[in-house]
């Protein structure tokens, strides 16, 4: 088997005596979508925040392309081409799309000033690809619809050539049409060879979008299975009862 794009081994983290993530190992290959499932508080968001640099793990190792890496901050994660789309979208509502897209990585003029015109032009280009209906470039993102805000969040990840994409409930706030758009985008990015971690509550959606799913319960990994090997009921059993499906190895 090829070297995984991301290999998180034996990851643990505690908050005030509570083991939020307990000795969990998951991996992700290029061109693959791995879903993380579990109840609220199962530890999936916490696990993924360790990879995106928002939390520091207590123990365990992270390998990217077979090389062990240290991720202590969001900046470290970005240096490994890991981009995250958060459930809350993590946008500064008072700034426009371009400022949000480049937040923390502004383009600057030779004098060191931020180059708003160039950033807006770049935003225009990537938006033409992702969401051709996107026109409100100079307005604060608080004036945008849920889908448009999602486009900005996704554009932020895609623009900087992410190799590893983390999507935390990307469709939670979206309508039917916009959800379909995100699904198409995930397929498209997969073809381009990105590895995607997807977090969702929607088992049905996960069965369609993912290649494999890892199910967590009470901070521990129940199991990782290929979606074609299991039924939706098997997965529900894993989530609710924490029991491994009988068929899958």
């Amino acid at each position: 088997m090829t070297t995984p794009l991301v290999d998180m081994r034996n990851i643990s983290i505690s908050f005030g005596g509570v083991r939020a993530v307990d000795d969990v190992s998951i991996d992700l290959h290029a061109g693959e979508v791995v879903g993380l499932l579990g109840h609220n508080g199962a530890g999936k968001s916490t696990l993924i925040k360790i990879l995106s640099g928002a939390y520091r793990k207590d123990s365990g190792q992270i390998f990217v392309n077979g090389k062990e890496v240290t991720i202590n901050s969001p900046r470290d994660a970005r240096d490994q081409n890991i981009e995250t789309i958060y459930q809350t979208l993590a946008l500064a509502d008072n700034l426009d799309a371009a400022s949000n897209l480049f937040l923390g990585r502004e383009l600057t003029t030779p004098l060191g000033f931020v180059d708003d015109a160039k950033m807006e032009a770049e935003t225009r280009k990537i938006m033409a690809r992702l969401n051709p209906n996107f026109k409100k470039l100079s307005e604060p993102v608080s004036a945008l619809s849920g889908g448009q805000r999602q486009s900005v969040a996704i554009a932020r990840a895609v623009y900087f050539n992410a190799k590893i994409l983390i999507m935390d409930e990307p469709t939670a706030a979206l309508g039917v049409h916009e959800t379909k758009m995100v699904a198409e985008l995930i397929d498209e990015l997969k073809k381009q060879g990105l590895g995607i971690f997807l977090i969702s509550h929607d088992t049905h959606e996960m069965m369609e979008l993912c290649d494999r799913v890892s199910v967590m319960k009470n901070g521990q990994l129940v199991d990782t299975v290929r979606v074609e090997d299991v039924t939706e009921d098997d997965i529900l059993g894993m989530i609710i009862l924490g029991k491994k499906p009988s068929k899958a190895a």
Binding site: Y86, A90, L91, A92, N94, S99, N100, G104
Partner: peptide, 13 residues
């Protein structure tokens, strides 16, 4: 950015 959304600012590095 920090004033608009402190969490977003922090997650942006």
């Amino acid at each position: 950015a920090t004033g608009g959304n402190p969490d977003a600012a922090e997650l942006s590095g």
